[in-house]
């Protein structure tokens, strides 16, 4: 009875997903050649955009036919909908287990790739945009849920650092799949890194970011599809295990230290120093 009631209230959501997904799949993969390579637009990106266009929080007039309360119910369905995809990735890792184990050292160490943000995002935040301690929250990680939990625990989300991490989190939720699809398709055609390395790097973010990334790589290298899914899936699984620790024990303390060095007079620095004092 309860289940039937829930289904009755959710059917508009499922119906919209069914229709937008079919249209997106019919459009298929579109390649857009630009000077430095090719950008691949994938069905999953079209589906996201179509659903956004039907979201009453984004397009206000939709609210008269589809309430914001009703679409809020779509949120817990994201993780359920991604489960078959994750299962499929698992079934490509098993057969390739020897290859994955051989790539073990590379898989483990690329988890530190996170620190690349300190090289390119941190300087821009500090010296170009003159941002304050928001920059610590913004650049310490790729800002997925575990990283939010770390910042919330340490500084609180209403602090400057919290504003930074939430900002990047939301931008990632909205644009992350696009950024990953574009990055992966450009790098796949640029031939700077090997396809195995690019596949491993696909696993650093959320499941949908990995889908966009591995999808773009596989479209660019159809022959290597199984290797790409096996390595990116293994890397993503590893990220669940290690991502939080890299961010907590390495990236965050490092960014915090560099910030205090370059902005020694920021009054906010003291606040965290006090937090650390009292924690001891």
């Amino acid at each position: 009875m309860e289940a039937m009631k829930k289904l009755a209230s959710l059917w508009p959501i499922h119906l919209i997903v069914l229709v937008t997904a079919i249209i997106a799949q019919l459009i298929g993969v579109r390649a857009i050649p630009i000077g430095i390579g090719t950008i691949l637009l994938l069905p999953l990106l079209f589906a996201f955009v179509f659903a956004l266009a039907l979201n009453p929080n984004v397009i206000k007039p939709i609210a008269s036919v589809l309430s914001t309360k009703r679409v809020a119910a779509a949120s817990p369905l994201i993780v359920i909908a991604i489960m078959p995809f994750i299962a499929k990735f698992g079934t490509t890792i098993g057969p390739a287990i020897e290859q994955v184990i051989e790539a073990g050292p590379a898989l483990l160490l690329q988890e530190l790739g996170n620190l690349g943000t300190i090289l390119i995002a941190f300087p821009v935040a500090i010296w170009v945009f003159r941002m304050g301690r928001e920059s610590i929250g913004a650049v310490h990680s790729i800002a997925r849920e575990p990283n939010i939990a770390i910042i919330a625990d340490r500084y609180g989300l209403r602090s400057a650092e919290g504003t930074g991490v939430v900002g990047v989190y939301v931008m990632g939720t909205l644009f992350g799949t696009f950024i990953f699809a574009i990055l992966a398709s450009l790098l796949a055609t640029a031939e700077v890194f090997s396809i195995e390395a690019l596949a491993m790097a696909c696993g650093v973010g959320s499941g949908s970011m990995m889908a966009a990334c591995a999808g773009a790589l596989a479209e660019a290298n159809p022959g290597a599809s199984d290797t790409i899914t096996a390595l990116s899936g293994a890397s993503n699984l590893l990220t669940y295990a290690t991502g939080m620790y890299v961010s907590l024990f390495i990236a965050l303390p490092l960014v915090e230290k560099i910030y205090v060095k370059v902005r020694p007079d920021d009054p906010g620095n003291k606040r965290t120093a006090n937090v650390e004092e009292s924690a001891r």
């Binding site: 590379a106 690329q110 790739g113 690349g116 890194f193």
Partner: peptide, 26 residues
């Protein structure tokens, strides 16, 4: 837009950083 640009750089930095380390290790 500032946070948007920083976010894009965070994603690029993480992806390229991971790919570079993986490539070197391989």
């Amino acid at each position: 837009w500032k946070i948007l640009i920083v976010a894009v750089l965070v994603f690029v930095g993480t992806y390229v950083g991971s790919a570079a380390i993986a490539d070197f290790m391989l």
